[in-house]
Design a protein around this nucleic acid. Structure first.
Lengths: 132, 132
DNA sequence: TATGTAATGTTATATCATAACATTTATGAT
DNA sequence: ATCATAAATGTTATGATATAACATTACATA
């Protein structure tokens, strides 16, 4: 299966992520009409589809939420950054070019063989933080 | 209770984290002789002590492992970075000064009110990555 | 020492994730 | 086309992580 061709379940889950307003947990995905309608019934089915999408760089896991989002740019899986609103859940994927290099430096200078960088910034989005 | 004075359970859990070789989950902490001996029996007891330590900046949560480490420098809770060996679990807390500023810039430029930055770098430590 | 607050104890349960094994579907060689 | 193989999916059960709700105890201080 090539990098960009999705399996049936991956398509279903990817569509769910694309349609979502924010990050979705596996169980939230499972509850969506869109997904139920297709006959997907077991958590494991969702997790397997998500694993495939992560592997293809087309989705990312938000560790601090145990949730998943569709990749908002060209597929990638080596490095990602997010701003996450702790009030409304809004999550924005960021380009992290500016800080990636110093981090890679730090890793290589200690002999660390880096596979993946994950950056999560928690706070209030401009809407939720308006009146504080 | 002041920032540096720990409650009884917080002391017990903090000692456990300090003594550990790497990150510990709440349930791993609960299983330690050191902790059992003190009479701590319920997961919630551990989570509450951990919450207190996080709040005081004396421990950090490693999101990608659902685990916790003692802070390796002066207590802080606004920003932290880690290198995590996916083979042996070795985890090293990093100074992230170099990349903190560009991230704060990105946040403020979009009106995001930043509370916390968490950076996790996954890979192989110098020991585990020796022969690859 | 009375009083309110923070910390702790206890039980139950919610939420997130994977193991093990069976079956079906897609793919490629002949 | 058809057979062999690997990949994907289905199904059931269970493991691992985290919190809710409420009772009790310890602690600070007026």
């Amino acid at each position: 299966m090539s990098k960009t061709s999705l399996t049936k379940n991956q398509q279903i889950v990817f569509t769910a992520l694309i349609s979502a307003k924010g990050p979705l947990t596996a169980y939230k995905i499972l509850d969506l009409a869109l997904v139920k309608r297709e006959g997907l019934k077991a958590p494991l089915t969702i997790y397997r589809a998500l694993d495939g999408l992560l592997e293809k760089g087309m989705a990312h896991r938000i560790e601090s939420l145990n949730a998943f989002v569709a990749c908002s740019s060209a597929p990638h899986k080596e490095a990602a950054g997010f701003m996450i609103c702790e009030q409304c859940g809004m999550t924005l994927e960021l380009p992290i070019n500016a800080c990636e290099e110093p981090l890679r430096q730090q890793a290589s200078s200690t002999g660390f063989h880096l596979h993946k960088i994950n950056i999560e910034m928690i706070g209030l989005c401009s809407n939720c933080g308006e009146n504080i």
